[in-house]
């Protein structure tokens, strides 16, 4: 168990520019956490801080599991633009299995491809797949690792509605398998469908944390209210 994850007065800045102002919070297993906020609010930076791709300029990111290698092994991240290794789809999955020190047999990798419906493209070069397929392959790589925590940074940002639904179904499968979901999105419908709670960021500040329904129906802060109005102009 690497959860819960605690952020203790975590801040991040570049030069004099504050990007995340000090924030403290704890994330535990179970509830799926959605990060919301306008472009540039700091969602991606916050997730990178949590995942350890950035080091905070102040404060600490503390996992329940103290050992660094185990922390790393039990988290996975799917980026907004999936990074496809210049190999076949199957080899992409086998690579992450090897990196994690797991059995990297073809059959094991094929199982992960099956899970995301990509077995039929196993031998194709990953970079020749469509955007939606690449994002599903990124999820297959994560699936193969059985992570305890999965970070997703706008995983369906440039996908059409049907590819988006496929991604959402897969995220739900992770959730059902007991993986903690931490996801940034601009799709508020998606936030409602997949999320249990919302972290709302505004200009690098954590303004609000609330259960998803409460957030949308009774936002506590004027910033969140304005954000919901802005993103859903028809409401």
């Amino acid at each position: 168990m690497i959860l819960p994850l605690s952020l203790e007065a975590v801040a991040y800045g570049v030069g004099q520019k504050p990007i995340i102002t000090p924030l403290s919070l704890e994330l535990s297993a179970g509830a799926s956490t959605i990060l919301l906020g306008a472009n540039g609010a700091g969602k991606s930076v916050l997730m990178r801080l949590m995942h350890g791709l950035l080091s905070p300029t102040a404060g600490r990111v503390v996992w329940h599991e103290p050992e660094a290698a185990r922390q790393r092994r039990l988290q996975a991240m799917v980026f907004q633009r999936p990074v496809m290794l210049r190999r076949s789809a199957l080899e992409n999955v086998r690579y992450v299995l090897r990196a994690a020190g797991e059995d990297a047999s073809d059959s094991r990798a094929l199982q992960a491809l099956d899970e995301v419906g990509l077995r039929h493209v196993a031998s194709q070069p990953a970079r020749a797949l469509s955007g939606g397929e690449q994002q599903r392959l990124a999820l297959a790589r994560a699936w193969a690792l059985h992570p305890e925590v999965l970070f997703l940074d706008e995983p369906s940002a440039s996908l059409d509605p049907s590819a988006t639904r496929e991604i959402e179904a897969l995220v739900q499968a992770f959730d059902a398998a007991g993986t903690k979901i931490i996801m940034a999105t601009h799709n508020l419908g998606q936030a409602r469908r997949l999320g249990d709670e919302v972290l709302f960021l505004h200009q690098g500040r954590l303004v609000e944390r609330a259960p998803v329904e409460a957030f949308f129906t009774r936002p506590a802060s004027p910033e969140a209210a304005a954000f919901i109005r802005g993103e859903l102009p028809w409401v």
């Binding site: 350890g52 791709l53 790393r72 092994r73 991240m77 990074v83 990196a99």
Partner: peptide
Amino acid sequence: EYDEQLRSLGVHGMRAAATVLWDI
């Protein structure tokens, strides 16, 4: 392109270099 993905996977140093060199 690879840096963050490899660090996310816990692949560092010589191993990361070998991955990149092999892929290109």
